[in-house]
């Protein structure tokens, strides 16, 4: 009975739909619960499932903001639910699944499938220059600053927030999104990857790639890892345009 008067009552509005039960139309369901100190949306949703509605679907894995599982639309903006403190939100919180991805149910979407397809399409892996590496010998030298720079772009967690935030991706389902463009930038920066700009042009030199981006920059502004998407896409665009 220590509940002080200043504890907020949160109203959580969840967009619910289970594709396995198409007879039930999509609807907004509202739950109420008391806010606690340090409460994140991970805690909120876990509590809702444990105590109110065991059928509620959502995805959390690391619950520490590093795995990219829990992207959802919180009051209109895509973000990582696990690291969103309720204290930073109004008492009315509307949660919806990330758009542009295949819906699994309620707040759960299939970003994994999308990301794998994107990776395959963009061949987003190191295309080694050498056929063979003798693992007993020293690794190839790499400039420390360059290594840091590659790491900066490697930090993407494939959460899909940039895609969900991108108006272009909403309109054009084949657009590779900022995540894809960042991958290309990352691998072309990597000295271990032997591909040239001309090779990269094959992958993103089209209107589903870098020339499809309309510089809406929501990706840049909402990326939870704060990747420098604006400058990377611009840089990539300049280099791809040079191929013309």
């Amino acid at each position: 009975m220590t509940a002080s008067t200043d504890v907020r009552r949160l109203r959580i509005h969840v967009l619910r739909y289970n594709p396995a039960e198409p007879e039930k139309a999509a609807r907004i369901q509202t739950y109420e619960l008391d806010e606690a100190e340090g409460m994140t949306l991970f805690i909120v949703l876990s509590e809702l499932r444990e105590k109110h509605d065991p059928s509620l679907q959502f995805d959390f894995v690391c619950r520490a903001g590093v795995c990219g599982s829990c992207g959802m639309v919180v009051n209109g903006q895509p973000g990582l639910a696990c690291r969103t403190l309720t204290a930073e939100l109004p008492a009315d919180i509307t949660l919806a699944p990330l758009p542009t991805f295949e819906l699994i149910g309620d707040l759960s979407v299939n970003t994994g499938k999308w990301m794998r397809e994107m990776t395959e399409r963009l061949e987003a892996w190191v295309h080694a220059k050498q056929q063979e590496v003798d693992l007993r010998r020293h690794e190839e030298h790499m400039d420390p600053d360059l290594a840091d720079e590659v790491y900066e772009l490697d930090r993407c967690i494939e959460c899909g927030c940039c895609v969900a935030a991108c108006g272009t991706a909403h309109m054009r389902t084949d657009f590779v999104g900022a995540v894809g463009l960042n991958k290309v930038a990352r691998f072309s920066l990597d000295p271990r990857d032997g591909r040239t700009d001309a090779d990269m042009y094959e992958l993103v030199g089209n209107d589903d790639g870098v020339f499809g981006c309309m510089s809406l920059l929501a990706c840049n502004d909402l990326c939870p890892k704060e990747l420098p998407l604006q400058s990377q896409i611009a840089y990539l665009r300049r280099r791809m345009a040079k191929q013309a």
């Binding site: 892996w125 010998r137 190839e140 790491y151």
Partner: peptide, 19 residues
């Protein structure tokens, strides 16, 4: 273990480097 690190280096892990 050293071989594993080196293999990962070749596969693209941006290991921090000595300056």
């Amino acid at each position: 273990a050293p071989k594993a690190v080196r293999e990962l280096a070749a596969w693209g892990v941006p290991w921090s480097r000595v300056r």
